[in-house]
Design a protein around this nucleic acid. Sequence first.
DNA 1: AAATAATCGAGACGGTACGTCAGGTCTTAAA
DNA 2: TTTAAGACCTGACGTACCGTCTCGATTATTT
Lengths: 195, 195, 195, 195
Amino acid sequence: MTPSPAGRGRPRDERSHAAITQAAAELIVESGYAAMSIGAVAARAGVGKDTIYRRWSGKPELVYEAVFTAADTTDLPDTGTLEGDLTTVVQSLIEEFSQPEAAAAIPGLLADFAADPELRATIRSRFLQPAKERLIEVFDRAGQRGETGAEVPVDLVLDTLAGAVFFHLGIIGEQPGPDLARRLAAMIAKGIEVR
Amino acid sequence: MTPSPAGRGRPRDERSHAAITQAAAELIVESGYAAMSIGAVAARAGVGKDTIYRRWSGKPELVYEAVFTAADTTDLPDTGTLEGDLTTVVQSLIEEFSQPEAAAAIPGLLADFAADPELRATIRSRFLQPAKERLIEVFDRAGQRGETGAEVPVDLVLDTLAGAVFFHLGIIGEQPGPDLARRLAAMIAKGIEVR
Amino acid sequence: MTPSPAGRGRPRDERSHAAITQAAAELIVESGYAAMSIGAVAARAGVGKDTIYRRWSGKPELVYEAVFTAADTTDLPDTGTLEGDLTTVVQSLIEEFSQPEAAAAIPGLLADFAADPELRATIRSRFLQPAKERLIEVFDRAGQRGETGAEVPVDLVLDTLAGAVFFHLGIIGEQPGPDLARRLAAMIAKGIEVR
Amino acid sequence: MTPSPAGRGRPRDERSHAAITQAAAELIVESGYAAMSIGAVAARAGVGKDTIYRRWSGKPELVYEAVFTAADTTDLPDTGTLEGDLTTVVQSLIEEFSQPEAAAAIPGLLADFAADPELRATIRSRFLQPAKERLIEVFDRAGQRGETGAEVPVDLVLDTLAGAVFFHLGIIGEQPGPDLARRLAAMIAKGIEVR
DNA sequence: AAATAATCGAGACGGTACGTCAGGTCTTAAA
DNA sequence: TTTAAGACCTGACGTACCGTCTCGATTATTT
């Protein structure tokens, strides 16, 4: 998002910002990502198109902010086992990405990000940075317990978990079974545990 | 692809078919999925737009056929271990999906398929059916060796592997390191082995 | 209409000819000239498009034959006055051109004929030759009665009458009042009579 | 032509308007009415198609404005006789409709107007209202001179004159002989004079 | 009888235009 | 300087027709 420039002239209306992201979120759910147009967002938000382009560079950026805003503030309880902790992480990934707006936005959003060379590299950080931090914490605990060795392939695990979750939610469109998180975490935990 | 109807009238020209799929494959690599238009494909193939719409219902169907045609006929050698067999499977997934056309097409293609309710369910079969058959064979062997138990979560493994591979190739855009297949297969194999 | 060539090969099916002209006449009334397509005529006649193009060079030629076929065989009674005779001529013009197919076809037909340099010159003969012969007869009689002089501007009168009738029927779309023929004939007759 | 709505937003660019009508007029002369496409007009005018559709509902409306804009401001001299006055009226009709753009446009334009039920009724007013006003003035003078009676069939005369002129110019495509106006006016004047 | 040839219905073919829509930029008057 | 409004150019969409062509099948004439 482009920050508001120097304090000359009329300041930006913050209410517009909220109206736009809300309108975008609604339209994604109603129409889907591809059918959602900037013009429609502007009309529903009661805003000019320029007001949107002044703040975001295009549809992907707008949708990303409109959909993935809720900071994941859930705390990460220590369940006592790597498998338990991983289950918690996967569960929160699933919860975040199975919101209706997220499910509707993810495939198109990933496609647009992937098509733009400048943005490809940022996907992992934009979508997965919070999860990565949690994973690191989980592996720290597991290392202290002796469940894992020194070298844990955090990125491999992260991409695998995220890939599986995205694949289910965004692409297959399957409502994730209640034990997907558990089964997935169990498999991965077992796969990287020491003995 | 719409099959040619009953044998009445002028038959469809197979050379047009080939020219169209080739032009589509070229343009995907040159322009990317989103920027590739049916009109441009028609122009390059020296064909009218109707000739394309007569055979395919839209861009996703055309691109799918243009990109994913090569039947995967590689045989599946018995490496003697579940981990080795899985590595082979993952490696062939990576090879298939890292062709330039495939890498350029996958994100947009998955997005378009996912956006169409009628096609969501077909993704797994269209993209992954061959891999699933190979997986079943691999797990059969592993079961006979005693590496796995009776109940192997084939779909979970398949979606996880495919998710990880798609995530790397299509979304992150990373050229898969030479040992991604090995590391991924090792993790999953260990995760589902019996002790 | 293209005549059937030498007697080799399968002869043209005369029933197709009739089916085509009938379908064309129906479609002109139902859809109007511009919206009537050759493909639709072929479909309704149960005929291939080539069967039409083999006989007519295009829509204007086909429609002309489909609509203006009825030879005007009404005899031309001697009413005893130029005005009366002219009224009869105008009346038959109106009757011919106010058939529903004719009224629907005329504006577009004239436009297509006028747009083709080769056909411009033929309009007068194609549409008006019968009327011109009648006019000449009418003026012969009038000359013998002494109503007109030696030099009667036949073409001027013809174009004027036809222009007025076409203008009313084809362009204004007005159902011609029952006395249009009488009033028009009276005006023209008086305009060219000697004293 | 659709009027620009309330004074909000960016006003329509009058230069686009002029560029469009000029391009349309040129293309009509070069290609003819039927072969002139909206897309070609837009391209030549350096304008998007939307900019045309925003102002006109279709080709007929655009062409009408592009071709028949020149207000006929010639004054109508009193020649002293009905025949002379009528000659002037017919002459100006001929001059207006024998401009190259008008001659090229009229047949197709009349066909399109006639095909649209909503526009049929407007033809007389759109094309002929100025001429009608002149005719009425001419007949006023003639009545005061005693050349005509109280009841003059203005519409009949108008349609007859216009029909004859359109028929010659637009349909036959004949360059009007220098004395067509004189002969036509003489015939009609004589036809409606009182004795 | 066999060969030749034109026609038949069907529908695919390369083109062209349609009228609509979205993208992203711009120009206005008002705030 | 931002705002809402909306015009602007570009370019793609999917559809409809155009007039031609290519099929297998049919129906005639010519050998």
